[in-house]
Write a protein that binds this DNA or RNA. Structure first.
Lengths: 240, 240
DNA sequence: CATTACCTTAAATTTTCCTTAATTCATCAT
DNA sequence: ATGATGAATTAAGGAAAATTTAAGGTAATG
């Protein structure tokens, strides 16, 4: 339990430091911190946390905004930190996918107690599932993961397994940039050692299936030096 | 009751997540989600649900529009979710085939209570009227799960027990993709450790019974790298 | 203009699946 | 009990298809 990966997101250095020391004293050694919602999101995409403490008041994007985005990457419990604590806040926080609500100023012992309690409960429940979406619908591309069927512009196309898995992954994370290494680890589920050719070839195969002109892709675009991104132009699949 | 298949349709990720967690905590483990009416419809066409939660406000097509279309695929109870709660809304909601009406913001406990109540009523009603009479009727294949009789093109064929179970499972879940592992766990009821040969041989036996040419199956097709699928070409599947 | 990152095609390798046959297991009549 | 029968499982060889590797080409970048 003490080896739980915890992420704390707050723009105030003081609070970050306080929570960090409290939790560290209690034996939690695996603590990361972030100052902005963007940083938190990036961290969540690369690492798997067991618990996230998220301040509502953040520069640029508020915690309320970031919460559902983080939810897409993980189903770890998210605790909101806030100054205000009206019932309405709590309700909307809960609606956004929060699991608990801690109001400033914190009682350090209370924070620790709540975290421990939640981790205990959560651990027991083995696999807390997130709402697994089964059908993805973009402008020209339609994926039914129940039947394993893929349609492009209404026509059914056959995909090899690995290419299908790749498409499915992109459908689950549209408009997000992934490096070849990330893709290999997420889709293939194996450690990446720089052999990026495999990914590139599969990207190509996928493009041959879903793009009008695979040489000039419009859905699965490459961002040179960084990776690939599946863009959903006008697809009726708008999260947040 | 807790194994009821539930579908939640809402474009807001947050609400999807909230309802999912609430219901999951209450023991409902079989939950699917969809963001659009189209997706919901696709899901209803491939799978049978016991209850559907449908948001009125949906992108593209409204819940009002989608409801009658879903009604054509199933007679599962449909609950409308809506922000407004004028009497007009309620009236048209029920007229369109809705079974209940839940207004945002929800009280989680109320949602669960209503769902449970409805499922209880529905279950009670359906059990005595039709005592689990299940006859599956596809184009060439007919399975009577009461008598255990299987007909292919009108002719009775004898199936070994395990092969029959396999066929029955496929009849219950047509047009859905299952991996060998899934099939083994669902049909055999034992943990799967990669010994997929058993499943393959049984697939072969089943094909010898139901296919004209077992080497080139038309009903029980294999999707390489992913699994098998029982396709019902236009054949109407009647659960009762 | 050289270097880097990416694209593209084709060949090589591996995986997956099919099929038949052999073996084990269970049932039932003798 | 015991052997016969049929079913379920395991095993093994081969075919087909998918994945990976490799190699040469192209476009962007500094």
């Amino acid at each position: 339990m003490q080896d739980a990966q915890i992420l704390i997101v707050d723009d105030e250095e003081a609070i970050l430091h306080m929570l960090n020391t409290i939790l560290h004293k209690e034996g939690f050694k695996q603590i990361d911190t972030a100052c902005t919602g963007e940083d938190a999101l990036t961290l969540c995409q690369t690492k798997k946390y067991d618990l996230i403490l998220l301040d509502v008041m953040l520069p640029n994007r508020s915690g309320f905004e970031v919460c559902p985005l983080i939810r897409q990457t993980t189903n770890a419990p998210i605790f909101f930190l806030t100054a205000r604590s009206t019932d309405l806040d709590k309700l909307s926080g809960f609606a956004l996918g929060a699991d608990d609500y801690i109001t400033k100023p914190f009682n350090p012992l209370e924070v620790v107690a709540r975290i421990k309690a939640h981790l205990r409960r959560h651990r027991q429940k083995s696999i807390p599932v997130q709402p697994a979406q089964k059908v993805y619908n973009y402008k020209d591309i339609e994926v039914n993961s129940l039947s394993g069927e893929v349609k492009v512009k209404g026509k059914v196309v056959e995909l090899p397994a690995q290419v299908y898995q790749l498409l499915l992954f992109f459908c689950k994370h549209p408009n997000q940039l992934f490096s070849k290494g990330q893709l290999y680890e997420k889709v293939w589920g194996e450690e990446f050692f720089g052999e990026d050719n495999t990914v590139m070839v599969h990207i190509r195969k996928l493009r041959e299936k879903i793009e009008d002109n695979p040489g000039q892709p419009r859905h699965l675009v490459t961002i040179r030096g960084l990776g690939y991104k599946f863009v959903s132009n006008g697809g009726n699949h708008e999260h947040s």
